[in-house]
Amino acid sequence: MVTVLENFFTEIGKYGKLLWWSVLSIRDFSTYYENTIRRMKFIGIQSLPIVLMTGAFMGMVESVQVLYSLQNRAPLYLVGSIVTESIILELGPVLTALILSGRVGASIAAELGTMRVTEQIDALEVMAFNPIAFLIVPVLIAGLVMVPVLTVFADVIGILSGWFISILTTDLSTAEFLKGAQRFFIPWDLTYGIIKSAVFGFFIAANAAYVGFFTEGGAEGVGRSTTRSVVISSVMILILDYLMAQFLLKAGW
């Protein structure tokens, strides 16, 4: 038990150090800017299809279930409010982040892990590069920026498909759906959703970078890192989601 705790704190220490070195490496701009652009493009292109699909189904399911709950109990136009609010506040950021921790986090962990076990990271260091600036900083920036961007895509597609299913399957009009959408909307909700997705994005990237960068033990180790990155990120997303709802959501009011 003591060793488990000890290991846990050693890992947290290493994780913190990696993030601290990344912060210090921010001034090595010329080392990382190219890789950052490439990484951002890659994450965007790689994940857009699955994010759009997630967004579409999330909006459709949400509208069907809300319409079901409202029938004969409350005015139907409320579907516009509930679908929009729940997607912007919760479903968009969380589902996108969970999907991306599998799609993006896993591939980053595998890529960095492979570079570690095939000594490519040592090779960078030997060539007088700062591997943190070259490899880790681009990942962190890309996660921080691209996950919110992709979340906005998922939100938009989600709300559109929620609207589409609502007017298709009931006699609700577009104008009424919009009335509902505007009824409870406040700008802070959108800000909160985006802050939340940026936090998720940063940690998806940081977890993948951490387990990938410190991979040990050949091909098997790379496999282990990949799984570990997805598990850690998923759990972290759920915990952070609760913490931000509890402590951040009301802060903007």
Binding site: Q120, V126, M127, A128
Partner: peptide, 14 residues
């Protein structure tokens, strides 16, 4: 390290 070259056992090409 600028004055060093290192040839890795398994090449370690990027």
């Amino acid at each position: 390290r600028r004055h060093f070259g290192f040839v890795f056992q398994a090449s370690a090409l990027f």
